[in-house]
């Protein structure tokens, strides 16, 4: 009798455990499914805003030279042929972008891209010792997860060093919308 009682209780306990395990399995399946449905959202959550993916800064190196810099986040890249610099007031006396890494584009052929960091010296056509200059950097880049950002224009205003003075500290850009896109 006692033996039977123990046996019945044990069977019942195992049945309860099995039901409990089944419910747990269903709960896990349901949660896994929820997480799966949120994967597109997660992909977006992983993205950085344009201006943080491609952080622009500039500093005055001397009275006639500005150093422009993009810090490119890991997993992101900029297109070389979509980078343009401007200065106000005045003009640039040319700016040579370093060669990028070659990338094969299905439609545009070979394109050059930059990752990690891009540093470019921007010579002014006229020296402006101690003068304030606004540098504009137009760029467009993508993330390896398969999305591209719209072109962006970032601007910084900096003071050039006086003649013979020490280079200035980098000034980071605030985001700005691009205007030519209608």
């Amino acid at each position: 009798m006692a033996s039977n009682g123990i046996s019945t209780g044990s069977v019942r306990k195992r049945a309860i455990d099995r039901a409990c395990l089944l419910r747990l399995a269903l709960a896990v399946a349901s949660i896994t499914s929820t997480l799966g449905a949120a994967s597109a959202v997660a992909q977006e959550a992983k993205l950085l805003p344009n201006e943080r993916a491609f952080a622009f800064s500039a500093r005055g190196v001397n009275e006639r030279t500005i150093e422009a810099r993009f810090i490119i986040a890991d997993g992101y890249y900029l297109y070389r042929d979509r980078i343009k610099f401007t200065v106000e007031p005045g003009a640039l006396a040319g700016a040579t972008l370093p060669p990028g890494k070659l990338k094969e584009d299905q439609f545009f052929g070979k394109v050059e891209t930059y990752r990690n960091q891009l540093v470019v010296k921007l010579p002014l056509d006229v020296a402006a010792p101690g003068g304030a200059v606004t540098v504009g950097a137009e760029s467009q880049g993508c993330a390896d997860i398969g999305v591209c950002y719209p072109p962006q224009l970032q601007k910084v205003t900096l003071s050039l060093p006086a003649a013979g003075g020490r280079p200035g500290m980098p000034v980071e850009a605030a985001p700005q919308k691009k205007s030519w896109l209608q």
Partner: peptide, 16 residues
């Protein structure tokens, strides 16, 4: 574990 997963799912939805 289920509670942790549920929390993660909820955070993901809220972070959305």
């Amino acid at each position: 574990a289920v509670a942790v997963l549920a929390g993660a799912a909820w955070r993901q939805i809220v972070d959305d």
